[in-house]
């Protein structure tokens, strides 16, 4: 099953020290999760994840690797405290899942309330056959506006961080070098 592949990839990502391999595995991880989304009927999410997660994220990370270090330093000691924290949090979350509705349950609370309204109403109201598109662009258009704002802010942040860095670096090269 695809989910088990995901778990194996995650273990490899945690244990490997060669960052290039880690980034490549992260690309595989994204592609695997895209296939899982496809199996779970989320076609729009699937191709977004394949393009953005497996594509753009991986390229960004490779670019960062080219500018920084290729391998990770070996940790001085095995970290017991984080392992303990992770184990306790994980156990609490697993305990929490016991109350979750079972997978594929049509009567689960998430599938009630506003969702039948979207499924029945979207075609007459927006004439868009894809319900996801109708909800994204019409019913919850403000979400998308907020998303654009976030991307705009992030873009400005990246430009400020790296654009300024370049001019500083040029200045530094003339004067002192770290």
């Amino acid at each position: 099953m695809l989910l088990s592949f995901l778990a194996v990839t995650a273990i490899a990502i945690v244990s490997l020290r060669d960052l290039f391999a880690v980034v490549m595995l992260f690309g595989i991880y994204s592609l695997l999760s895209a296939s899982i989304f496809l199996v779970l009927d989320a076609v729009d999410v699937s191709f977004t994840e394949a393009a953005v997660g497996a594509g753009i994220s991986t390229v960004l990370m490779l670019g960062t690797l080219a500018l920084t270090a290729r391998t990770e330093k070996k940790p001085a000691h095995l970290a017991w405290l984080p392992l303990l924290v992770v184990a306790i949090t994980g156990a609490a979350l697993i305990y929490g899942t016991l109350d979750m509705p079972r997978w594929g349950d049509a009567n689960a609370p998430i599938n009630q309330h506003v969702v039948p309204r979207y499924i029945l109403g979207s075609l007459p109201e927006t004439s868009v056959p894809n319900i996801v598109t109708a909800v994204l662009a019409s019913y919850r258009g403000y979400d998308t506006l907020g998303e654009v704002t976030v991307i705009f802010t992030a873009g400005i942040g990246v430009m400020l961080l790296l654009g300024n860095g370049n001019s500083n670096r040029r200045r530094k090269k003339g004067g002192r070098k770290r």
Partner: peptide, 29 residues
């Protein structure tokens, strides 16, 4: 049909996620 609402939310989240990743990587550089 499967529930379209989580799909919409996650579609937004993926794109926001790549924006935060880009910002984080810029900080690293």
């Amino acid at each position: 049909y499967s529930n379209p609402l989580p799909h919409v939310l996650i579609l937004t989240a993926i794109v926001v996620g790549v924006a935060t990743t880009a910002l984080g990587l810029a900080l690293v550089v």
